[in-house]
Structure formats: structure tokens, C-alpha cells
Nucleic acid binder design. Structure first.
Lengths: 243, 243
DNA sequence: TGTTTTAACTTGTTTAAACATGTTATGATT
DNA sequence: AATCATAACATGTTTAAACAAGTTAAAACA
């Protein structure tokens, strides 16, 4: 339900690109043409296009035009790029998700935990361990730290479904941004046990650590996601900044 | 040497945030105040701020203000986020870089290579294997595929220094964007040999595959970077899109 | 005193216009 | 036929103004 004009245009163009209305390396219609198509101002159109640029869908060339550089990615299994819940990702990629809650508890942040989570010492936290299955294969072992005062009424029941759904649709929280760090870490015995892996094979995990903020500027979540390495894929598009 | 006004403002604000002129969780001066400070229009200022948002430096809150959510990251060793050459990254992080060219050759893309590089079959390519050292430790094994017609006159000598420096300052090519995919792969014997690793320890590598485009919309480079896992760190800030 | 309304802020969206700069094809000139 | 100037068209930057919508504190009211 796009509310703004530029977002409507953005989605329409994006969809057209994905569906080959514009083919790879082809120039999109010029700004003036698109302005007439969408009956909008130049700024509004440019705003839509600039989002396509940061998505890596098109490339603007001064004096020349806007080139489609989108190529559909071979997305085997589980792919990360935007902020998405496990459920959203799974459904988008056409798989059936399942989540098992291994541990649901609460405590106050220790000094050691403060160092890596970013929460101040003493902060009250829900700590949840969850195992995410995709098509009955355990793929991700999640360690969630949720700020208790920002996520009241969280239960194991909710954690088994979708916490993000609860946050957004019940608590009406708006998730804004997420700082993520990807690393590769040694597989632990816990990883091995729950993900049913054998350290004789892969002995590493793909680890995504994230700090997530809501619209009040509050960091309400720290999560460490430990991914089975052979199913892990992270997409990114970087734009070169001029110096 | 920032040419545009919004870029000057962006860099000034960014620097102020990094240097604690605005502290964590503090609100920045309001738009109107900053407009007076920089003697610019509202649009120009907002353009600067929006870049800080996508950097994960600040968070805008309608009706409230702009909150500083920047926290300096503990950047041990080698960190990736933007498009940067190995040299640039190394220098920025205060390390001394060294590059060894293991192989410098040229050939035409085969069908198999076409599938993963994205170059059409038969394309003439420079293929380069390079080993990147940081503080005398071999960290990254690079497999570069450069489009020959886009990178004329490339030599092993240049590859030993900085190819990007050659592209930008000698060939005057403008690098625009880079689509990247991160995965975790099994360590090969070549990895083991050149990076002086022991598969008894880590048996995986952090792999970054990238397709890079220039300002003519030409994909001129495909690179697979194989990183020593214990020194690999990838930063990202994701902004939640409204649905 | 406590509640409600209002006014004064904040950021978000959209339009319009002007000028800058890069590219290309047309047409005049040699 | 080749060269060069130019006009037409492309995107890039900046300003100005109006309105929308969310937040907060002051003012008005009961």
C-alpha cells in the first residue's frame, strides 16, 4: 500500500525491470517521457529512479540516459539483502518456513554482554534462542536480545511465529534501520547439535550480527544469526562515492 | 575535493558526528538551524542528511528531529563496506598493504566461466591472480577478470600497485557501482598454499564475488575475493522499506 | 488542578523553475 | 568527404514555495 507518489512510481518501474519490460542494458525512457507517463514532477520521478540506482537496478549516465543493469540472481536457498524477517524471506523465495524456540528467558545485561550487544550494563532483556528451518532443513541458529521495555508482552508463543509481525502489527512499532556485521566464525558444539552439521565437513558458520533501531531512535534488538555456510548468501550493491 | 554543496555539507556533518561534536542519541540541530548554518536551501540540506541516514549515522524522526545513532566500530584488521580498492582500505585502517601478482594472463571466456562471471562467451579477458598482504600477513586471494577492451594496456606491473588507481587516474574511467555477493566456501589447496593457512584450523573462506560497472554502463570487472576468515568483516546498514 | 485545545515547532512530500554539464546528431563550412 | 560549430536532448544541482503530518509545550478552559 504505497502512500507516496514516488514510491508508487518506484515500484512500478522496479516491477517493469524485473519483468523484462526493459531489457538488460537497454535505456529507460527519458525523464521527460516518464514525467508525462506518470503525470508527476521531475523531482518526484528522480526520487523514484534514485532508489533504483541504490538497488543496483539501473545506472544513470549524465547526458546519455538511464541504463537497466538488472540481472536476475540465481537465488539458491536463503538470501539476505534488505531488512526482512525469516518468514518474509522464506515466503518471498518460495519456501516453507518453520521456527523452533529452543530457549526463552530474560536477564539483565552483563559487562561482557554489553561489549558486544551495545546495550548498557543492567538493561533488562528477553533472550531467545531459535532455530529456523527451511523446507525442514535447520538453517539458522538465532540468538535474539530484545529490549524488554520496548517489547512488552513477548512470549515463546509469539517467538515461534513471527516476532516482527508482533512488533509491527500488534505493538505498532516501526522498524527503521539495522546495522549489520558479517563475519565467519568457528562452528560450536551448539551449532553442530542443533543444525545437525558435522564439523568434519564445514567447520565454520556465516555469522550476521545486527543492531536494530525503531522509529524512536531506540536500539531495541541485538541479534546474532549463525547461518549454515553452504546455504548462506548475502547480496549488496555498493555505489562508488566521488572524492 | 567535493564539488557540490550537498556533498560538502554531508562531509562536514559526518565528520562532526565521528568526532563527537554531536554525541550518541543526541538530536542534531533542526533543518532550519542547519540551513542558516550552511546558507543553503532546505532541499540541499535534506539531501546531505539523507546520505547520513543511508550510512546508518543518523535516524530521522518526523515531528521530533534527527538523532545521532553513530557508534564507532571496533575495526579489527580488514573491514569492507563501500567500494574501495585494497590499498584504500588498508591505508584508511592504518595498515601497510602489499600486493603480489601470482598470475597475469589473458583468455576468452568459456561457457562455464560465462555462467558465474556474467561476461558473454568469447569475451576477451585479462585474468589476474593476486595475493594481498596486510602488515606482511597474506589476507586475501583475488581472482580478477577484467574486460580487455575496457582496460587497455594493463600490465602485471600495474596490477602490483593499484589497478583502480590506473583505471581512474590514467584511463580516466569512472567506477560507478558494484554488485556483491558474500558466501562461505570450502578452503581449497590453493587458498591453503598461498594464504599459509591450515585446513585443520579453519577450513572455510569468506568469499566476496563482485560485478563492477563503469559510467558507460559496461560491466568491466568480475572479481572473486577469497578472504582469510578470521580477518574478515563486512559492514552494512539496511533501511527498512515501508510496504 | 487537571484536561483540552491550540500554536509553534519538527520532518515528509510535491511542484516549479532555473541553471549547469555532458552527449549526440544535425547542419554548415571547408 | 571530413571537420567543426551548434542545437537539441540527456541527467545533475540548487533554490523557493506550498502543503501534509507528527510532536510538544504553551495557552485556554473547565
Amino acid at each position: 500500500m504505497p502512500k507516496s507518489i514516488y514510491e508508487t512510481i518506484y515500484k512500478d518501474l522496479k516491477q517493469k525491470i524485473e519483468n523484462d519490460v526493459f531489457t538488460y542494458q537497454q535505456l529507460l525512457p527519458s525523464e521527460n517521457t516518464l514525467i508525462q507517463t506518470y503525470h508527476c514532477s521531475r523531482n518526484t520521478l528522480r526520487r523514484a529512479v534514485s532508489r533504483l540506482v541504490s538497488d543496483g537496478y539501473v545506472q544513470t549516465m549524465q547526458g546519455k540516459g538511464v541504463r537497466n543493469i538488472y540481472q536476475p540472481a540465481a537465488q539458491t536457498a536463503f538470501t539476505i539483502s534488505e531488512i526482512e524477517s525469516f518468514r518474509e524471506s522464506a515466503v518471498r523465495n518460495g519456501h516453507s518456513p518453520l521456527t523452533e524456540v529452543l530457549l526463552f528467558t530474560e536477564f539483565a545485561i552483563s559487562e561482557k554482554q554489553s561489549a558486544y550487544t551495545g546495550f548498557p550494563v543492567g538493561t533488562d532483556i528477553y533472550y531467545i534462542q531459535r532455530l529456523h528451518y527451511l523446507d525442514h532443513i535447520p538453517l539458522i541458529l538465532n540468538h535474539n536480545y530484545f529490549l524488554k521495555e520496548a517489547v512488552p508482552g513477548l512470549t515463546a508463543q509469539i517467538a515461534e511465529n513471527s516476532i516482527y509481525d508482533y512488533l509491527e502489527n500488534t505493538l505498532h512499532m516501526t522498524i527503521v534501520n539495522s546495522k549489520r556485521i558479517m563475519t565467519v566464525e568457528k562452528m560450536t558444539q551448539i551449532d553442530e547439535k542443533y543444525l545437525k552439521l558435522n564439523a568434519e565437513d564445514y567447520n565454520c558458520m556465516a555469522v550476521v550480527s545486527s543492531q536494530t533501531y525503531n522509529s524512536d531512535g531506540v536500539m531495541f534488538e541485538y541479534t546474532q544469526s549463525r547461518h549454515r555456510p553452504d546455504y548462506f548468501r548475502f547480496y549488496d550493491n555498493a555505489v562508488r562515492k566521488s572524492n
